[in-house]
Amino acid sequence: MNTVTNQFRAMGCPCELRLFIPDKLNQEKVVSCCVAEALRFEEKYSRYRPSSLVSRINAAAGVKAIDIDPETSAILDYTRVCFEQSDGLFDITAGSLRSVWHQNMKTLPSQEVIERGLTKIGFDKLIFSTDSIFLPFTGMELDFGGVVKEYAADAIATLAKSMGIQHGLVNLGGDVCVIGAQQDGTAWPIGVIDPFGHGEAIARIELSEGALTTSGSYERFFQVEGKTYSHLINPLTGWPVEGLVSASVIAEQTIVAGSISSIALLADTAGGLAWLQSCQAPYLAIDQNKVCHGTLK
């Protein structure tokens, strides 16, 4: 058996595969299939590629419906459940608020500007079925950033398992999906970055199955009029979120862990902690006062 570590970039973040590949399998083929699967998601769902499905959907906003495939339809159904479970905080249409809140702003936006921005968002305004989707207003856009990277990790893990890989992990920008424990049976040690540090880990989690995702608001933020604002905008109020700085969650699927950790950061501190408690998944959350909460050590 060969242990293979392959690093690449996809979906705007550093990615890593660690696989124990049995001798009888073609190592290059396994790795290239996994990387290709990650790139497939980038091709399809990246906002930054004008040819992607998402860009075509966004370009047709207010104009016409676009055909979608079963995978996209299933992802949309999943994000609907996230929208409902989070009482509207997790909203894939909230991306258009970037026009209201962005880097290099000199002054805070007026309430009027915010209100106008809010008219262009709202998951419940989307019109979609199993084979097409229509964004009814010009300026509306979909942003799968909170869900596709995590789903891609699950998809790559499933692909690797179907090729015969039983030990390994997939790490897409800090969202880790375990294919199976290490070859000798020991769990994978995964570090959670200290949001207030300089890249060191604040916790080490041992995982032999399932997924661990970390959502954080510490890497990107705005400075406006002397105050720091999170890049995460609350889609109900239109204002940046003031809440937890980082949340790490363990669940069986990466997409589920990712949704839970994302939603935790979209609420205020108390709401985020209450959400994590109600999900009953192991979590580690750090608030603005550098206090750690949660069931993970």
Partner: peptide, 9 residues
Amino acid sequence: ESVQPWERG
């Protein structure tokens, strides 16, 4: 009791 998937080892 409720057993989470990662506890099923």
